[in-house]
Design a protein around this nucleic acid. Sequence first.
DNA 1: ACAATTTGTTAGACTATTCTAACAAATAAT
DNA 2: ATTATTTGTTAGAATAGTCTAACAAATTGT
Lengths: 221, 221
Amino acid sequence: MASQTEENYLKALFNLANPEGEINISDLAQQLEVSMPTANSMVKNLQKRGLVQYEKYKPVKLTSVGKKEAALIIRKHRLTEMFLVNKMGFGWEEVHEIAEQVEHIHSPKLFERMDEMMGFPTVDPHGSPIPDKQGRIQNLQLKSLIEANPGQEAVLSALADSSTEFLQYLNSRDLKLGTELKILSKEPFDQSMIVSYGSVEKETLSQKVCEKLLVKIFEAN
Amino acid sequence: MASQTEENYLKALFNLANPEGEINISDLAQQLEVSMPTANSMVKNLQKRGLVQYEKYKPVKLTSVGKKEAALIIRKHRLTEMFLVNKMGFGWEEVHEIAEQVEHIHSPKLFERMDEMMGFPTVDPHGSPIPDKQGRIQNLQLKSLIEANPGQEAVLSALADSSTEFLQYLNSRDLKLGTELKILSKEPFDQSMIVSYGSVEKETLSQKVCEKLLVKIFEAN
DNA sequence: ACAATTTGTTAGACTATTCTAACAAATAAT
DNA sequence: ATTATTTGTTAGAATAGTCTAACAAATTGT
Ligand SMILES: [Mn+2]
Ligand SMILES: [Mn+2]
Ligand SMILES: [Mn+2]
Ligand SMILES: [Mn+2]
């Protein structure tokens, strides 16, 4: 059984993988806030355990076993976040730190029950998909708001950044998942957008913000 | 901050303490399923950290700081057990193992919310008192069923043993906290008792069982 | 192509937690 | 009072996870 430390490495590897599934040791080290030699030695350990594929000076790749293990930890993380928000009244900006700990609990039944009590949710409070029990993740094919054009409507469906700071920014603007944004205009100079939503007539969103808002885009009619 | 391992030692020390607050290294080792040298070296470590009082060849004692730390971990354990039973539909025989892990989560808010959602319970699913936020524990002064006499009534209020096996035995006899037992007779030979409760007309409880049932005793009228 | 920078590796050390083997003190049994 | 048993201690070693210092390979920029 993977230790808590190993589980955190697997998760980081999963999240950092580029489209080809490759991860640099330095990115891994940075993500986990450890030194490169530390990351390096853990990668060797995971290799011995058959969870990653690795050769000296080449990028690391999770094996399919490693990928599944990682996805199942992420499943526990996201179920926990959703449970904390839906069933315990936490804000979406408060749950990540707790889930970071709860994800390591060994109890299939605990997570089964969370899942059941919530009616088998498919996404977490930040819109990220919850892997299924086999560790499979559905791809929602969302677009960044930056891709939307004036005249279109966009439903906020997920976030490319779930940091506390960004979530608090969204709270302050009353932006939540499900919010329908009407794109009023787009500033060619700095890529900022003016949008309207809910009871908010007019709000300017910087490029930085727009990039992090993942949406479903519709033609307004 | 105490590590998960240190927390488990503190809890064991708290639970094993005799009326004078003293614990033998050998009992500690046995409880935690480690060797005596291991327990010994952890005791030295806890001493350095000011959590126990200890001198070579003398029994260990928690300091008041150590006692409070221990009680607060037990608080998290018992709140968790109660939450799992009351809010998530677990049986009282399923929750200890999970709580053993959840008790180490660092999140005052998580346990606050559990407490709130349950309306500030004072005992766990096995009738053991939940320490308050200051680490104080109320003493319920319960008696063992063995002390009750024919003609009296007893309300099952806690258990002196919360092992899965015992809890499953109680499940099989439909015995729960709150069950009102009428003592019909007591066998002088083996200390077994014949009782009646709920829809159960007549049930024989061995001495072993009776000793582990903690009750409030009333004169029947 | 060469130099500079970034990335990755090795070696060696440290802490936390555990063990076994050997011994010492305390307690219990004759 | 001795002896035997139980309990506790020390010494020495192992593993997991981390670090810094030094070096090597790969990549980037002229
Ligand atoms: Mn998260
Ligand atoms: Mn984690
Ligand atoms: Mn318990
Ligand atoms: Mn525990």
